[in-house]
Design a protein around this nucleic acid. Structure first.
Length: 325
DNA sequence: AACGAGTCCAACCGCCTCTAG
DNA sequence: GCTAGAGGCGGTTGGACTCGT
């Protein structure tokens, strides 16, 4: 006893929309709005499924959509939000007026992903490949780690070479202390030079770590407190050098035995756990302990992550706290 | 000019949650 | 309370287009 079907599947047209169909849909919605997608194709005289009409409208016909190329600032916003939300395209698109989730997704898959890989950054975790290799080194015994790192470096260099031969990059450009400026090419230049140093530094790091702290190399906890000895390395090669996204740890709840917060884990595993989830969970936990003032204090500390003055974001705090804007 | 490889993006697919009946 | 469609979302695909040989 469900609802009546939205359309007769066999009489439904599929594939590219014609300008006539676009006109029919646009003028119908202009007059009647988008309240009931099931009725829209029928009333507008279209042989389309309601779902198809909704998709066409939301992704293409809506008058408030931008159709041009993504700006550098938009691209940076996508990268930053993706590092927190993962593939939650609708959330990311909500921060970019005039862009749809489909736009953002397509742009990410066709451009941003490749750019990040070319910079030596893993687009899934947003960590530099060298940082990931350093993490691997903390989880494996030295012989295994060294072999894996060599292999990874080989793959990595092939990829960079491939990218370089396809898209010449201006190596003469400056690389300032703030490489992620408005011009993404500056950042690319910075990363290219950084990559040239990576091989030597990793090898150096391995031999130094194995010599100085054999217990660290043998540890099998990727993110325990000793693994944080890779912090300087990680920070040096972090995606955004001035932006310690994954380093924050709420003071009162940080368990020394297990200080990988659910949020920082989620960044690696790409679960849907967000900073806001973390904040709410933390608040509930502290309240359970009957410590209201501590709960409020932690909420304030965490809110600072989204403070416009914080180096973490250059987005309005309100927008980030309310991704559905 | 012809062809193949690579790129881009609109549209589709399938899954999930919500809700009308 | 149950069922099945609507709406929303992320992943994938097909075809148009571009570029290099």
């Amino acid at each position: 006893m469900g609802r009546i079907p939205c359309c007769e599947k066999e009489n439904v047209k599929r594939g590219q929309w014609t300008p006539e169909e676009d006109n029919k849909l646009s003028s119908y919605i202009a007059q009647h709005g988008t309240r009931n997608w099931r009725l829209i194709p029928k009333n507008a005289g279209l042989q389309r499924c309601g779902k198809s009409c909704r998709l066409r409208w939301t992704n293409y016909l809506r008058p408030d959509l931008k159709h041009g190329q993504f700006l550098d600032s938009e691209e940076q916003t996508i990268v930053k939000l993706h590092s927190v939300f993962g593939n939650r395209w609708s959330l990311i698109a909500a921060q970019l007026p005039g862009r749809t989730d489909n736009d953002v997704k397509n742009h990410w898959n066709t451009k941003v992903k490749k750019k990040l890989s070319g910079m030596g950054i893993d687009p899934v975790t947003h960590k530099s490949f060298s940082h990931l290799m350093a993490e691997i080194a903390t989880t494996l015994a030295p012989p295994q780690a060294a072999h894996l790192a060599e292999a990874a470096l080989g793959c990595f260099k092939d990829e960079v070479l491939h990218l370089l031969t396809k898209k010449p990059i201006n190596f003469l450009g400056q690389h300032s202390a703030a490489p992620l400026g408005n011009d993404i090419n500056n950042y690319i230049n910075y990363k290219q030079e950084e990559m040239d140093r990576t091989s030597d530094k990793i090898k150096l790091g391995f031999s130094k770590d194995t010599h100085d702290k054999p217990e660290m190399i043998l540890s099998n906890k990727a993110w325990n407190s000793t693994a944080a000895t890779s912090a300087s390395f990680a920070m040096q090669y972090s995606v955004f050098p001035t932006m310690p996204v994954f380093q924050y740890s709420p003071s009162s709840l940080c368990n020394k035995e297990d200080d990988a917060s659910q949020w920082s884990q989620s960044v690696c595993t790409r679960s849907t756990f967000t900073p806001m989830d973390h904040q709410n969970q933390l608040y509930e936990k502290l309240k359970e302990n009957g410590d209201d003032s501590e709960a409020t204090k932690e909420m304030t500390n965490l809110s600072n992550i989204f403070n416009p003055d914080c180096v973490l974001w250059d987005l309005p705090a309100d927008d980030l706290n309310n991704p559905m804007v």
